[in-house]
Amino acid sequence: MTSTEQLAWFKSSYSDGGGGDCLELAQAQGNSRDLIHIRDSKNPTLPHLTTTPDAWSAFLTYATR
């Protein structure tokens, strides 16, 4: 498994950089499948959520309705 320090985290292009609430995402391969990692940009050392690309896509589809 990839450690969170080795992941390339990125913020949404909608983030204004002004210190507001924001999520960061990273994509990594592990155990022969891609994984999406999601964390709070204000507290990157806290536990983060890991999900599959299919589940993340389904969430985004639901959230943007």
Rank of each mutant, 00 (worst) to 15 (best):
M1L: 14
M1V: 12
T2I: 15
S3R: 15
S3V: 15
T4H: 11
T4E: 05
T4D: 09
Q6K: 11
A8E: 12
W9Q: 00
W9H: 01
W9E: 03
F10E: 02
K11N: 15
K11E: 12
S12V: 10
S12T: 10
S12Q: 08
S15G: 10
S15H: 02
D16P: 00
G18L: 14
G18K: 04
G20Y: 00
G20S: 02
G20K: 01
G20V: 00
D21G: 02
D21S: 08
C22N: 13
L23N: 01
L23I: 14
L23M: 05
E24M: 09
A26M: 04
Q27W: 08
Q27E: 03
Q27L: 10
A28V: 04
A28N: 00
Q29E: 11
G30Y: 04
N31C: 10
N31I: 09
N31Q: 10
S32Q: 12
S32C: 11
S32T: 13
R33W: 01
D34R: 01
D34K: 12
D34G: 03
D34L: 02
D34S: 04
L35K: 06
H37K: 11
H37S: 13
H37M: 10
I38M: 10
I38W: 02
I38V: 15
D40K: 12
D40Q: 06
S41E: 13
S41Y: 07
S41Q: 11
K42S: 02
N43S: 08
N43A: 12
P44W: 02
L46K: 09
P47S: 10
P47A: 07
H48V: 13
H48D: 07
H48Y: 15
H48F: 15
L49I: 15
L49Q: 12
T50E: 11
T51P: 03
T51E: 07
P53N: 08
P53R: 04
A55N: 08
A55D: 05
A55C: 10
W56P: 00
W56V: 04
W56K: 05
S57M: 13
S57P: 06
F59K: 00
F59S: 00
F59Q: 09
L60R: 10
L60D: 06
L60T: 10
L60N: 13
T61D: 10
T61Q: 14
Y62G: 05
A63P: 05
R65F: 01
R65S: 07
R65A: 04
